[in-house]
Structure formats: structure tokens, C-alpha cells
Design a protein around this nucleic acid. Structure first.
Lengths: 180, 180
DNA sequence: ACAAACATGTAACCAGTTACATGATTCA
DNA sequence: TGAATCATGTAACTGGTTACATGTTTGT
């Protein structure tokens, strides 16, 4: 029984790169896809069970006692392709910072400026994170064929963060002229 | 009994601008906050009930038979301020496009290019939408004190979309050199 | 010996969406 | 008179998180 096709997609996708344990699947999602995707433990294990039951992955004993290695089956690869070709599922937007800016009159210009300054710092930190991710990916000597695509996602993160940064600067400047 | 403080925040916030019906609350969220927030009908009405029960809003008969107008109480305004000052609740990222780009080797460069081209068109459409929102907001002659803050959120959307657009162009260019 | 990392899994809870159900008012 | 819009509400479902519970292996 297929649960969320979104989680199916993520799990099948990471297993398409290499067979691994459930624990490793979570780490791969966190470390490699972390800036645009997330899955919790509570989703990954049940998903692996159902994918195994559906014959989309096969379960093999791992090196440690009690551990398993999950391998994508041909049917699993086909399902992955179907999911990748299916329309993207978009989640409804919820931006807490924008909510606070929109009602900035209630909060007051100084409080809003403080929030934006915080966002600005976060953006700067993120830029450094992207460098780290890029370096980590460039390190990987396996999976060379994936590398250019992976670089594109890092670049997307960078562009997005740069846009946010530009807005922060502009907004902070504009806020100085707001009535207080 | 307070349900999701997120929905409480959104509902209290729109009522802080003007008293209105539940239906109008939904319209305000969709039309004014739409590019960074969303609430469904199924959330709004129960939330209005619980806020009324908590004395944060008061319910008055509306002009039409059976309709109600909800008004923020002083306690409600205080609660709104608390929520605005509370740390932002961030939802875990889930970007379907990035997922497809990351596993672009599986999908193939042409399919990835098609997806990015689609995203590019969407971004262009969005830019036009921001103009429309800006125009609509500038129209509003009431609520002048909110206007500069509202403009900041539109500007944020614009910056973000511009960043996405720049990435699309770069990515489409880069993809032409990928092995196929 | 101990801590950190590896590893698996479940149960309770919660937020949120969708679909359903109903009816009044306005305008063309 | 009929369609669109205004208006309110509920119930079932689902996707997802968090916390709990347990145990092994590796490295220091």
C-alpha cells in the first residue's frame, strides 16, 4: 500500500543512487537534499516497509546484526520515473516573516527591522552552507553523472538566498523612513 | 481552546485591519496574503468559533440573515501582539522542482529543461501578479498606515521571483552542455 | 569503560485539506 | 428566473511530526 507518494519519491530517489539502510536514507535526505527537502524518521521506516511489500525495493541483510540494506528493484526504478514525471505537488505557502512584515504597523518599525536583520544574518549563514554542500558534492568521486545536476540545485539555493539578501538590505533601508 | 496558533495568528491579524465575516476573512487571506500565506475554509470557521469562545474576538449579527461580523477584542489584540512577537514557525522545505533537478540524470536533460522552462514561465506570470497586487493595495485608500509594510511584502515576492528567474536562465544555459 | 554513532521501529497526536451539505442575496 | 456570489458549517481523511522504546557497533 503506497503511503504519501511524496515520501515514496524521496526514498526511491535516494536509493536510485546507491543501496543503503533506512538510517542512511535519512542521512542522505538531510545532508544532500536538506536545503529543499525533508523527511522524518517516522515516515522513512514505514515507507520502506510498504515499498518492500509492493516489490519496489528489496530488503537484504546488512553488515551489522539487525540492519538491512534496501535495493531498488526494476519495478521501483519504473515507479521512480513515473513519480519524477508526475506533476509537482506544491505545498501551500506559509511565510512567518512576511506575515510579520505585512502587519508591521502593529508590531512597529523597530521590531520589524530586528526581524529582517535576523533574516539577513541567516541568509549570510546559508550562503556559507551552500559552499560547504558544494564542496562535499565535488568531493564525491562516485556518481559523477549526477554531479552537474546536483550543482544546479546548489546554484538555485544560492540565487534564492541572494534574492532574499537583496530584499533585506532594501527593506532595512526603507524602514528608516517609516513613521515611528 | 486555542487550536493552531498559526491559524489564530492569520485570523486575528486580518481582523485587526477591519471587522468582517468569516467568508471575508478567507478572501482577505487569499487576496492580500496569498503570495506568502494560505488558510482553508475548514480551518477558518472552527478557529473563529474558538477565538470567540476565548473572548479574543466578538461575534455580531451581520447585514445578511445568518451572517456574522467578527470584531477583535482588546484581549484579541494583545494575543495578536504576542503571536507576532513569538518566534516564527518554519515548515520543513519540500521543493518538487529541486527534487527533479537533483535526480535529473534519471529524468534526462531534456525533461529537466522542460520543467525549468515551465518554472520560468510561472515566474514571469508571478511578476505580473505582483504588479496587480501592488496596484490593488495602492488603490485602498483606507488603512494608509499599513501601506508601506504591504509594499515591502510585494517587494520581497518580486526579489524572490527575480532570483528564481535568474537561476532558470542560468540553468537552461548550463543544461545545453550536459551529456544526453 | 564509555560515548558517539549506527540502526529500527511504533504510537499518539496534530494540523490541515477536501468534500459535503445547506441556504440567502444580488445582479443580469 | 437562473447564475454567481456571499455565507456558514461539519466530518472524514491524510500527511506528517514527535516522542518513546530498544539495542548494536565502533572508536577513544
Amino acid at each position: 500500500m503506497a503511503r504519501s507518494s511524496q515520501t515514496d519519491l524521496a526514498v526511491l530517489a535516494v536509493l536510485s543512487v546507491a543501496p543503503m539502510s533506512g538510517y542512511a536514507v535519512r542521512e542522505a535526505i538531510r545532508d544532500q537534499l536538506g536545503h529543499f527537502w525533508s523527511e522524518s524518521f517516522g515516515q522513512i521506516y514505514p515507507t520502506l516497509s510498504s515499498l518492500t511489500a509492493d516489490g519496489l525495493v528489496s530488503k537484504h541483510p546488512g553488515e551489522r546484526s539487525g540492519s538491512s540494506v534496501f535495493v531498488l528493484t526494476p519495478a521501483g526504478r519504473e515507479r521512480l520515473l513515473d513519480l519524477l514525471r508526475a506533476p509537482e505537488v506544491t505545498s501551500p505557502p506559509r511565510n512567518g516573516l512576511m506575515m510579520r512584515v505585512f502587519f508591521g504597523h502593529t508590531l512597529g518599525p523597530d521590531a520589524v527591522a530586528a526581524l529582517i536583520e535576523e533574516a539577513r544574518q541567516q541568509a549570510l549563514t546559508q550562503l556559507a552552507t551552500f559552499d560547504a554542500i558544494a564542496a562535499m558534492m565535488a568531493d564525491e568521486d562516485d556518481h559523477r553523472e549526477h554531479q552537474p545536476y546536483w550543482a544546479l540545485t546548489v546554484s538555485a539555493g544560492r540565487h534564492s538566498t541572494l534574492g532574499a539578501l537583496a530584499w533585506c538590505d532594501e527593506a532595512l533601508e526603507a524602514l528608516t523612513t517609516f513613521p515611528r
